[in-house]
């Protein structure tokens, strides 16, 4: 039995310490992802806390056939959507350039970070699919489960997302050549 499964078993038995150990490795990754879906750093932290509490509370419903990270991301995505309220506005609408938590976490020298462009160019679900694929190296199947979408939706939108970003990159390259 792997360490993760042992910790899951102990956490299922009610051990908060085991659960804290279990999710320790995921906290930074989750927070980084939640920053892309929250209007402020504090909101992202709150959603992370709510996500971990919900995961611990409902750990009995975790199906070991899923990867634990997939299950965790699914809860995080739902909590992030819930924290934005029932109107389900796109995160782009909430963003305030000065207080953008993602912008704040990217060094000034790295303003060409592709995720900043991705967030402007892609809708929330496509952005999340791209993130889970390229930042988290998740499989298509796991992304589908996390987003509660079909595998074909995931494949098509990953392809669209890539095309949009490639077009953007090519356009930016041509522009810099023109000015260069």
């Amino acid at each position: 039995m792997s360490d993760e499964l042992k910790l899951i078993a102990a956490a299922k038995a009610g051990s908060a310490d085991a659960f804290a150990d279990l999710v320790r490795a995921y906290r930074v990754r989750l927070l980084r992802f939640l920053l892309t879906r929250s209007p402020s750093y504090a909101d992202a932290e709150d959603v992370l806390q709510d996500t971990l509490i919900a995961a611990f509370r409902y750990l009995h419903s975790y199906d070991p056939r899923w990867r634990f990270s997939t299950w965790l991301y699914r809860i995080a995505i739902r909590n992030a959507a819930k924290s934005r309220g029932p109107d389900l506005v796109e995160i782009g609408d909430l963003r305030d350039e000065e207080n953008d938590p993602l912008q704040q976490c990217i060094a000034d020298s790295e303003t060409d970070n592709l995720w900043l462009n991705a967030r402007q160019l892609l809708n929330d679900d496509v952005f999340a699919a791209m993130w889970l694929r390229y930042a988290e190296d998740m499989s298509i199947s796991d992304i589908s489960k996390s987003l509660d979408r079909s595998a074909s939706w995931t494949k098509v939108n990953l392809m669209r997302g890539r095309r949009v970003l490639e077009t953007h990159l090519n356009g930016a390259a041509q522009q810099s050549e023109a000015y260069g």
């Binding site: 906290r27 980084r32 976490c105 060094a107 790295e110 970070n113 390229y134 930042a135």
Partner: peptide, 13 residues
């Protein structure tokens, strides 16, 4: 590039 840019988002708990 997407993978590396994600890692460059400086986050800590």
């Amino acid at each position: 590039q997407l993978h590396d840019d994600a890692q460059r988002i400086d986050v800590s708990v």
